[in-house]
């Protein structure tokens, strides 16, 4: 019996060595360990083994069974390893990836607007909005624009048949916001479309995009305006950007400034680029709001504020080096894909 086991052991090891694939291994397992297998047949002879030999024979039987089982497992692992390696052999990982649905894009204007909004929100401004079809009062009168100001002319501003107009700036949202404000401070930004009766060309659109800002409280000063807008433009253009304020004139702020930032131009000297208008809210604006509200929350002798406005289309053009504003409304894929 022991010698049978020994020769079976030798036979099994040889067979394991010879097994060339997984099916041969499975056949081997059945041949030796299956119900009718050789080892199974031998182990059924245990009952005839004399009791004094049972221990040795049993031990040998186990040894042979373990050897065969382990041999099969190790051969299986080897076959699996070979298969795993083969499964990726010949793959060229420099081939382009599967494109899925393809790459989409947000319009550059959306991206700029979002950058401006997220920056200003970090600085404590909330969003506000107002209608684009506006009354002349909200767009001009309340913003201290003289009754015969040329901007009101039909050659410059779009009107509807009922006398309302398409707002010429987002500044009308200043008025809308202050009219409905419940308390101070008012600290808002209002991105939105504005309309001017300009022929469309490389630098003009009849419909364009602005972002308005307003901060009203007790004791808001020019220092607040300067700190806020310098910080904002350095966030947009980089921390070292030079920002300058040039005195200017707008009907709804006094004093008023235009803001330039100094930008690099390839191969040229750095240039000052006009980027926004701003100023301290004119008391006449607060007076108009107070008259409309019929209360004293915006009493011009008690409160001050600053306002600013910038052209988002222009900002996008400057930041991306876009040379013709019409690209922004033509939506050529070759353009959109660049952003």
């Amino acid at each position: 019996m022991l010698s049978d086991l020994t020769s079976l052991h030798t036979e099994a090891l040889a067979a394991l060595e010879a097994a060339s694939d997984e099916s041969a291994l499975e056949a081997l397992r059945i041949d030796f360990l299956g119900k009718k297998g050789k080892l199974t047949a031998l182990s059924s002879g245990m009952k005839d083994v004399p009791p004094d030999l049972k221990k040795d024979v049993g031990a040998k039987l186990n040894e042979v069974r373990t050897a065969i089982t382990d041999g099969i497992t190790s051969r299986q692992l080897a076959f699996q390893a070979t298969k795993d390696a083969a499964s990726v052999s010949g793959l060229d990982i420099t081939l382009p990836g599967r494109p899925g649905l393809g790459i989409g894009s947000l319009h550059p204007l959306t991206q700029i607007r979002h950058l401006a909004i997220t920056t200003l929100r970090r600085m404590g401004f909330a969003l506000a909005e107002g209608p684009e079809v506006e009354t002349e009062w909200h767009c001009f009168d309340a913003l201290n624009t003289p009754a015969d100001h040329p901007a009101r002319n039909e050659s410059d501003t779009f009107y509807l048949n009922d006398g309302r107009l398409l707002r010429t700036h987002t500044s009308s949202v200043q008025i809308r916001t202050m009219e409905s404000a419940k308390e101070l401070p008012v600290r808002i930004i209002a991105p939105g479309a504005a309309y001017r009766r300009d022929e469309i060309d490389a630098t003009h659109l009849s419909v364009f995009n602005q972002l308005e800002g307003l901060y009203v409280d007790k004791d808001v000063s020019l220092a607040d305006l300067k700190g806020t807008l310098e910080y904002f433009f350095r966030e947009i253009f980089g921390p070292k950007t030079a920002v300058r304020f040039r005195p200017h004139f707008f009907p709804f702020t006094e004093p008023s400034f235009e803001i330039d930032v100094k930008l690099e131009a390839k191969g040229k000297e750095d240039r000052w680029i006009e980027i926004a208008g701003c100023g301290m809210v004119d008391p006449a604006v607060f007076e108009a709001v107070s008259q409309s509200r019929k209360d004293t929350l915006f009493d011009p002798t008690e409160i001050t504020g600053f306002a600013f406005g910038l052209g988002l289309d222009r900002l996008a053009m400057i930041l991306h080096g876009i040379t013709d504003i019409r690209h922004l409304i033509e939506n050529d894929l070759r353009f959109l894909r660049q952003f």
Binding site: R121, A126, P185, L222
Partner: peptide, 24 residues
């Protein structure tokens, strides 16, 4: 303000809390 210029004006960094609005 025009004659002094904004160079003389200190930059003040001050913010107020802004409540989220429907527009936000």
């Amino acid at each position: 303000a025009r004659v002094i210029g904004l160079d003389r004006v200190p930059a003040n960094f001050r913010a107020a809390f802004a409540a989220t609005d429907t527009a936000d």
